[in-house]
């Protein structure tokens, strides 16, 4: 057991004119060194906020974040800067995540300059190494982001995140803006880098086929809460939470002989602003009854498989 990141009861609320927006509500997990935790969910479920809160782009409202066993929850100033060098992020949008007025070279160089650990010649050398590592041609060194395609831009974003040799990287939908043929190039690169450098990833995405490919463990989020958490294999073989099942069945399969039996969800999505204590999926859940309006607890149904659903015992028998 060598956890790099341990998150306990993490909460992130935003104040909005209509009340408290529960973006991340009571999330707990650990990620072992060199492994990948996939976080899946639909837009607005708080998966991006979760990643950003862990690396301190947002301040957490409650809960604890441990990095290599050290509490980094409320760090400020110099300590925060030190911790951040170990935790980096790769962004979703390869268009807005690079400064349009900076060359590729100066974008990759910037973290090295800001850290003040290196001399000029070390920075030159490291920038070169990073460009080779992520596969960017030397001739693009002085190019501007708008001259590059999405895949290459994303490589620049990866090089920038790797510059300070972090241990933990939040990948926030890094391939969802890319075409499939380019997406595969970037996913392979991320996997290669993980193997070579022993990186630990938290991989946020809405694409189930991508998350299945890259993750060791998966958290399924719905409106700020983790509704199911288990190993990647287990999730796809034995999904238990009604939401996970609906999510999996909704993915259009490319196998035309086996069209999936879809569980079409009805009802409207509950608002994450001042939510009621019960199950947040209840309004769309085909199995919901009065019990679901009570506070839901996360339970371990089999070793390493956690589900947040009070009616699991009753309804799982109806699954086939």
């Amino acid at each position: 057991m060598n956890p790099v990141i341990e998150v306990t009861n993490l909460k992130k609320y935003f104040t909005t004119p209509r009340g408290m927006l529960h973006a991340v509500d009571d999330v707990t997990f650990t990620i072992e060194r060199g492994r990948t935790l996939g976080v899946v969910g639909e837009s607005g479920c708080g998966k991006s906020t979760l990643g950003r809160t862990i690396i301190h782009l947002h301040e957490s409202t409650e809960g604890q974040i441990l990095l290599n066993g050290k509490d980094v929850t409320n760090l400020k100033g110099k300590d925060l800067r030190q911790a951040r060098e170990k935790m980096q992020i790769i962004f979703q949008d390869p268009y807005s995540s690079l400064d349009p007025r900076k060359t590729i070279d100066s974008t990759i160089r910037e973290p090295l300059i800001v850290s003040r650990h290196f001399t000029k010649s070390q920075i030159d050398q490291k920038t070169q190494e990073l460009m080779d590592l992520v596969g960017i041609d030397e001739r693009l060194r002085k190019a501007y982001p708008h001259e590059l395609d999405g895949g290459r831009r994303q490589r620049v974003g990866i090089a920038r995140a790797l510059a300070l040799e972090p241990e933990f990287i939040v990948c926030d939908e890094p391939v969802s803006a890319l075409d499939v043929s380019i997406q595969a190039q970037v996913l392979n690169l991320l996997k290669k880098l993980q193997k070579e450098k022993g990186l630990t990833y938290m991989f946020v995405t809405h694409d189930m086929s991508v998350v299945r490919h890259i993750s060791d463990d998966i958290c399924v989020m719905y409106l700020g809460q983790v509704v199911e958490k288990c190993s990647s294999k287990e999730l796809f073989q034995n999904p238990l939470h009604p939401y996970t099942r609906a999510l999996l069945s909704a993915i259009p399969s490319t196998d035309i002989d086996k069209p999936n039996k879809r569980e079409i969800l009805r009802g409207e999505i509950t608002s994450p602003v001042n939510p009621k204590p019960g199950c947040r999926f209840a309004a769309r859940c085909p199995y919901a009854n009065e019990e679901c309006l009570k506070l839901q607890k996360q339970e371990e149904v089999s070793p390493g498989h956690f589900v947040r659903c009070c009616r699991l015992q009753e309804i799982s028998s109806s699954y086939n």
Binding site: L247, S249, I251, I264, L265
Partner: peptide, 9 residues
């Protein structure tokens, strides 16, 4: 989202 996509399709 995929669950909504399924409805629309």
């Amino acid at each position: 989202d995929v669950t909504i996509q399924a409805q629309v399709l």
